[in-house]
Every structure is written in C-alpha cells, then in structure tokens.
C-alpha cells in the first residue's frame, strides 16, 4: 500500500472574531494517494474552500494533524512551509488570481521566481507550461486582454510550471461557460493521466465530480459518506 501523499487527522478549523466563533471544519480525517484525482463537494458555506486551503498548506488548522508525504506539517512555521508550497503544490483559484500588472509569461514564471535558477531556464519552463495549456501565442498579453477561459488556463500553467506533486483547484470552472469548463476539465484530466499529477478539485457540479476517482462530500464542516 503506497504512502498517502497527504493525510488529515481529526482536523478542526474555527474562525474566531470578537463576537463569535464559526466552526468551518470539524474532525475531518482523510487520505489522498499519489496520482489520485479527487473532488470535494458540498453546499455553499460547508467548508470546502477551507478544507482545500488546509490541504494546500495556506491555512492552519485550529486542531488536528496534517501530514504531507509522510512529514507532519501542521506545526511548521512559514519558513519551512514556503518551500513545500513552492515545490510540491500548485493552486488554481476560481477567480484566477493573476497579477494584472504582469504579462502572461511573467505570471506563469512566478512560482519559479522563488526557486534558485537562471532566468533563461525559468523562461523555458514557463513557455513549456503555456504550450501545455495551449497559450504559447499569448505570452506577452496582459491578463485583462484574455478571456476567462484563457485566464484560467494561464492560472493552470502557473500551477503546473513547477511540476508539483499535488494540484489544488478551487472551483476552477466556476466562472466559465460550459465550453470553457469542458476545456479546463479536459486539461486537468490530461495532467492527471499523462503526467500523474495528484489533483484535488472543489466543485459544485456533480457531473464534473463524477469524472474524478473519489468524491468527498462535506456538510456543515464534516465529511459525510
């Protein structure tokens, strides 16, 4: 049995303000193996994005343990987490989160900017990633000059440029029309099958979730089966 790529054990996430506490995740335990394509489903506000953020090491659980490739990561500080995020994880957000003042090529290069490596090598890898998503002819455009689908493909190119072992996609087709959604789903499937990238995708769409190997259903911050 292979070692899970990522595992959560009894994870709880509580958001606290001066006036109230909101329990976003409650006793969530799950494991995801290398090479899997899984989806997370649930109604709005059930904690899907919070779960994805905890899995992506960009949010800390209030309680519980997170293990990445056999290493306990929930207690690590920013300096130890940053290289794991940079080298092992890739993010695709519903609202793309491209930097509008950077050209497509510079946006894609961004994760490599925080690694050691020559500028030419970064450029080569960024062009390669853009070719994978079919945007090799848009390298010098600014994000605002692209359609929503193209922007999401740029975001995917940015997510895969560093060849991460885990890709986290938060409703990657949520802002796209059906044709664009289909293109993006096809792209994620190809990355999973052809490159063996593990993918965790948050979605509202049952049809898209059905195309993944496993579905985690979340309700009121708890996993339901």
């Amino acid at each position: 049995m292979p070692e899970p790529l990522i595992a959560l054990s009894e994870v709880q996430k509580i958001y606290r303000t001066d006036r109230m506490e909101t329990v976003a995740l409650q006793a969530v335990s799950l494991t995801i193996d290398p090479g899997e394509f899984v989806s997370i489903m649930g109604p709005s506000g059930c904690g899907k994005s919070t779960l994805l953020n905890v899995l992506g090491l960009i949010d800390k659980p209030t309680r519980g343990a997170v293990t990445f490739a056999g290493r306990a990561v929930s207690g690590l500080g920013d300096a130890q987490l940053a290289p794991i995020r940079n080298q092992e994880l890739g993010f695709v957000f519903q609202s793309f989160h491209l930097i509008p003042d950077l050209r497509v090529i510079d946006n894609v290069e961004l994760p490599l900017f925080y690694r050691k490596g020559a500028w030419r090598e970064r450029r080569r890898l960024a062009l390669e990633a853009l070719a994978v998503v079919g945007l090799a002819n848009r390298v010098n455009h600014f994000p605002t000059e692209l359609s929503g689908g193209q922007q999401q493909r740029v975001a995917i190119a940015r997510a895969i440029v560093g060849k991460p072992s885990l890709l986290l996609a938060d409703e990657p087709t949520g802002n796209l029309d059906s044709q664009m959604s289909e293109e993006i789903m096809g792209l994620l499937e190809r990355l999973n099958t052809e490159q063996g990238t593990t993918i965790i995708m948050v979605t509202h769409d049952q049809a898209k979730a059905d195309r993944t190997r496993r579905i985690f259903r979340l309700f009121d911050g708890q996993l339901v089966h």
Binding site: G56, I58, D78, A79, A82, P83, R85, N86, Q87, L89, F91, H97, I99, L110, P111, F113, Y114, R115, R158, G162
Partner: peptide
C-alpha cells in the same frame, strides 16, 4: 497579491 505570492511559495520575509 501578497497572499498569492505566499501561496505560490514565497516566504513572508521575501
């Protein structure tokens, strides 16, 4: 943008 850069692997100090 700062959040994005940190999600992509930049340390806060960087």
């Amino acid at each position: 943008e700062i959040g994005l850069r940190r999600a992509l692997g930049a340390a806060a100090g960087s």
